[in-house]
């Protein structure tokens, strides 16, 4: 299980707003994903998580750095052209906002079958509609939803449709950009279970982007923490939660409520001092698989 699926090297992405103003949304981020792994990516709003996801999906062209998918440099035009079809079916993304990522004028059946019809896949279950029905049942919705439009569904149902669409291609890498952020807790748990199931049963690797740390702890094998475009810490989940090293990670973890009123009362919140954040550090290995952004020691 140690084969490397995705290798992000020094990824940088800058948005140019006008002649003078630029936003460094992602700044020198490096991480690797193994095959079959669930990697969490957490960080506050605006820390650049979605931008990383979109660079991985070739939506944005990175300003700097390299992204290797199974040794294919996806930033390289010639290699991309050669492997385009394969990449487009192996990588799938679930967008942050299911309302805008589903076309309001298409029925659920058409939405779910869209990737299959783009790739002109021979449906294994007879017709694209039957295929869509199967995918829908997989996310817990029955055939009566096939002819609905997204506006007729609830937020949770829409998100499930988006997930069903992504899963219909049996992706090898699923980028899930805050798939549960807008849902209520019971539905969140169901979707988490669904992702877990996909990972266990179908070996699908998942890049799970979230800002809810308790769900991340339950789902992910490893977690990376982003702050202002930088990856400040990355470690196996248990290690990170037990032994956070970067001050920002500590602050973030101290904000998780504890489901025990007595312990919760004595919980201390650590505040993170933004001014002290040093963005010029280097990701340094402090334990097996545990990396923290630190000032380089001379």
């Amino acid at each position: 299980m140690s084969e490397i699926l995705l290798d992000v090297q020094h990824l940088t992405h800058v948005f140019r707003l006008d002649k003078h103003a630029v936003i460094k949304a992602v700044d020198d981020v490096s991480f690797q994903m193994k095959k079959g792994e669930i990697l969490g990516l957490v960080g506050e709003s605006g820390s650049g998580k979605s931008t990383v996801a979109r660079c991985i999906m070739n939506v944005y062209k990175p300003t700097g750095g390299k992204i290797l998918y199974r040794d294919i440099d996806i930033g390289d035009k010639a290699q991309l052209r050669k492997h385009r079809k394969m990449l487009e079916s192996l990588r799938q993304i679930i967008f942050q906002d299911s309302t805008s990522s589903l076309n309001q004028r298409m029925t659920v059946a058409d939405i779910i079958a869209e990737p299959m019809s783009i790739h002109r896949m021979r449906p294994a279950r007879g017709s694209l509609r039957a295929e869509a029905e199967f995918q829908l049942s997989y996310v817990g919705m029955d055939a009566s939803y096939l002819d609905k439009y997204p506006t007729e569904l609830s937020g949770g149902q829409r998100q499930r449709v988006a997930i069903a669409r992504a899963l219909s291609m049996e992706p090898e890498l699923l980028v899930a950009d805050e798939p549960i952020a807008s849902l209520d807790v019971s539905i969140q748990a169901q979707i988490i279970n669904l992702l877990r199931h996909c990972n266990r049963e179908h070996g699908c690797s998942i890049l799970f982007i979230a800002h809810d740390l308790s769900m991340v702890e339950y789902l992910c094998d490893r977690v990376g923490v982003m702050y202002r475009g930088r990856l400040v810490e990355i470690a196996p989940t248990a290690e990170l939660y037990a032994n956070p090293r970067h001050p920002y990670t500590k602050a973030l973890l101290s904000a998780i409520p504890i489901p025990d009123p007595i312990a919760e009362r004595s919980r201390k919140r650590i505040d993170f001092d933004e001014v002290s954040f040093d963005r010029d550090g280097v990701l340094t290995r402090i334990a097996a698989d545990h990396f923290v952004l630190m000032q380089e020691e001379v």
Partner: peptide
Amino acid sequence: EYVVASKCMG
């Protein structure tokens, strides 16, 4: 986003 999604799917 749904056009971006469609492009991602190829």
